[in-house]
Amino acid sequence: MNRIKQKIQEDKKLLSIYFSAGFPTLNDTVTIIQDLEKNGVDFIEIGLPFSDPLADGPTIQESSTIALKNGMTTETLFSQLKDIRKTVHIPLIIMGYFNPMLQYGVEAFCATCAEIGIDGLIIPDLPLDVFEREYKAIFEKHGLLNIFLITPQTSDERIKQIDAASDGFIYMVSSAGVTGSQSGFGNTQEDYFSRIKKMNLKNPQVVGFGIKDAETFKQATKSTKGAIIGSAFIKHLHKEGIKGISGFIKSVR
C-alpha cells in the first residue's frame, strides 16, 4: 500500500512539514528529511524550487530563490534522494509547479519518483481536468498519488469532483491568500472548516497555510486529519539552521 494511505489510517493528528529542497544550503536536503523523521514528523513535502512560484508567499519564495542560486535543479534533487529509502520510512511528497516536471518529461519524472520512493505529488497549477485526461494513467502506473488543493472559494461541486478524483488526502488551503500570510484562524476559516466537515468527503483533509505553532496546529486539526507547516518552519531554519529542527517540532507537538 502507498505510504500516504497507510499513514492516514493511523489514529492520530498528522503533522506534515514543507521545506524548499536545497535550502539553506544545497546539500541540506537529506539531513533535513532525516531529522524531521527522527523528531516525529508524519510526512514531508519537499519543495521543488521554481523561478515563478505563484502560490507561495515571500518566505517560501525567498527560500526557493536561494535554493536555485545554490544550484538546485530537478536532476540534483533526484540525485540527492536516490538512497533516501535506506534511512527514511515516512511518506515523502514532492510539491512543485508543473513547468519543471513538463521540461523533465512527465513520464520520466514519475518513473524517477517511483524509483526513489516518492509517494505523491502536489502540483498547484495542474488543473484537475487536464490531469485526468492526460496524466492520471501515468501517475497510477508509477504508484504516485496526486494531491489536489481546495480553498474557501472552491464550490461544493468542485470539491466533490476533487474528492472523487483523489485517493489519499485533500490539501485544504485555509485561506485564499498566499502561503505564510496569516496569523491564526478567524471566523471565516472556522466556518470553512465546519462546511467541509459537514460534506463527509471520502478523503481526509490536511490543512495548509497559516499553521505555525501548537495553537494553530490544534485549531487546524480540530475537524481535520492533519496540518502542514511551511513558512514558519523555513523561517526557523533560516534563523536557527538544521540544529533547531528538534526544538521547532517539539514546540508544535
Rank of each mutant, 00 (worst) to 15 (best):
residue 206 V to I: 15
residue 226 G to V: 05
residue 13 K to C: 09
residue 104 Y to F: 13
residue 162 I to V: 11
residue 38 K to N: 13
residue 44 I to Q: 06
residue 160 K to H: 12
residue 20 S to M: 12
residue 168 G to P: 06
residue 7 K to N: 09
residue 118 I to A: 07
residue 36 L to P: 06
residue 10 E to R: 14
residue 61 Q to K: 11
residue 125 D to W: 00
residue 247 G to A: 13
residue 90 I to R: 00
residue 198 K to V: 01
residue 28 D to S: 15
residue 148 F to R: 00
residue 45 E to A: 08
residue 204 P to D: 07
residue 157 E to Y: 08
residue 131 F to Y: 15
residue 127 P to N: 08
residue 225 K to W: 10
residue 12 K to E: 10
residue 101 M to E: 01
residue 83 D to N: 15
residue 9 Q to K: 15
residue 86 K to V: 02
residue 251 S to K: 07
residue 68 L to E: 01
residue 226 G to H: 04
residue 181 S to V: 06
residue 225 K to R: 14
residue 217 F to E: 02
residue 1 M to S: 15
residue 218 K to C: 14
residue 182 Q to Y: 00
residue 80 Q to P: 06
residue 116 I to W: 06
residue 232 A to M: 03
residue 46 I to L: 13
residue 103 Q to T: 15
residue 70 N to M: 11
residue 39 N to P: 04
residue 197 K to Y: 10
residue 165 A to F: 06
residue 89 H to G: 06
residue 39 N to S: 08
residue 169 F to Q: 01
residue 95 M to R: 06
residue 214 A to M: 08
residue 46 I to Y: 02
residue 192 Y to M: 05
residue 141 K to Y: 12
residue 50 F to M: 10
residue 102 L to H: 13
residue 225 K to S: 08
residue 230 G to H: 03
residue 224 T to S: 13
residue 150 I to V: 10
residue 235 K to R: 11
residue 249 I to S: 00
residue 8 I to K: 13
residue 89 H to I: 05
residue 105 G to H: 06
residue 90 I to H: 05
residue 215 E to K: 07
residue 139 F to K: 08
residue 213 D to E: 06
residue 81 L to T: 01
residue 195 R to W: 02
residue 190 E to A: 05
residue 138 I to D: 02
residue 110 C to T: 02
residue 91 P to N: 12
residue 178 V to H: 08
residue 224 T to V: 08
residue 213 D to K: 05
residue 186 G to H: 01
residue 171 Y to A: 04
residue 86 K to R: 09
residue 146 N to E: 15
residue 131 F to P: 04
residue 54 L to R: 10
residue 133 R to P: 08
residue 51 S to F: 13
residue 252 V to D: 07
residue 51 S to C: 10
residue 164 A to H: 14
residue 157 E to D: 09
residue 116 I to G: 04
residue 66 I to T: 14
residue 202 K to P: 05
residue 25 T to Y: 13
residue 127 P to S: 09
residue 4 I to L: 15
residue 46 I to W: 03
residue 87 T to S: 12
residue 19 F to C: 05
residue 112 T to V: 11
residue 118 I to E: 05
residue 242 I to Y: 04
residue 232 A to K: 03
residue 50 F to R: 07
residue 156 D to A: 09
residue 101 M to G: 01
residue 132 E to Y: 14
residue 3 R to Q: 11
residue 243 K to E: 14
residue 139 F to C: 14
residue 121 L to I: 11
residue 191 D to Q: 09
residue 208 G to T: 02
residue 165 A to W: 06
residue 162 I to E: 03
residue 107 E to T: 15
residue 86 K to Q: 12
residue 62 E to R: 14
residue 214 A to D: 13
residue 79 S to E: 14
residue 122 I to L: 15
residue 180 G to Y: 00
residue 7 K to F: 06
residue 221 T to A: 05
residue 34 Q to D: 10
residue 191 D to W: 00
